[in-house]
């Protein structure tokens, strides 16, 4: 059974690259363009990993992270934050409850390596 990964990013071309990269490894993918839609999807769909951008309309990645970690149902969901924000570092993003952090632009080899740590 392939693992399901939810991608939340408002940039369509970035979503396409992430999708092509992850499809290469045979993952099942769902994509949304903001945090609010990601939250809705997670409530109705079983997901093995969430990859989220930070700067998104409506609900940004940090708000999404906080909402998920506040809900016991998502306490153990692996969440990988992938962002170009200058203030974001692995240390402060993990301190907010993320499982991992990648700086954008992110080479596919790094992405696949990080994803493998959470979903094999």
């Amino acid at each position: 059974m392939p693992k399901t990964i939810l991608i939340a990013d408002d940039n369509e071309s970035v979503r396409t690259i992430l999708k092509l990269t992850l499809q290469f490894k045979g993952y099942n993918l769902i994509e949304v363009d903001n945090g609010a839609k990601a939250l809705e999807t997670l409530k109705t769909t079983e997901v093995d990993l969430l990859i989220s951008d930070i700067d998104m309309p409506q609900m940004n990645g940090l708000e999404l992270l906080a909402a998920l970690r506040a809900d016991p149902k998502f306490a153990s969901l692996p969440i990988l934050i992938c962002s170009a924000e200058q203030d974001a570092t692995e240390e402060n993003i993990v301190a907010r409850g993320a499982s991992g952090f990648l700086t954008k632009p992110c080479p596919p080899s790094e992405l696949l390596g990080a994803v493998a740590k959470f979903v094999g």
């Binding site: 071309s13 990269t21 632009p105 596919p108």
Partner: peptide
């Protein structure tokens, strides 16, 4: 803009 250009470039290189 750099991110928009580099993301596919990395993809092309790595693949």
């Amino acid at each position: 803009n750099v991110e928009e250009l580099f993301q596919p470039l990395y993809f092309i290189r790595d693949f």
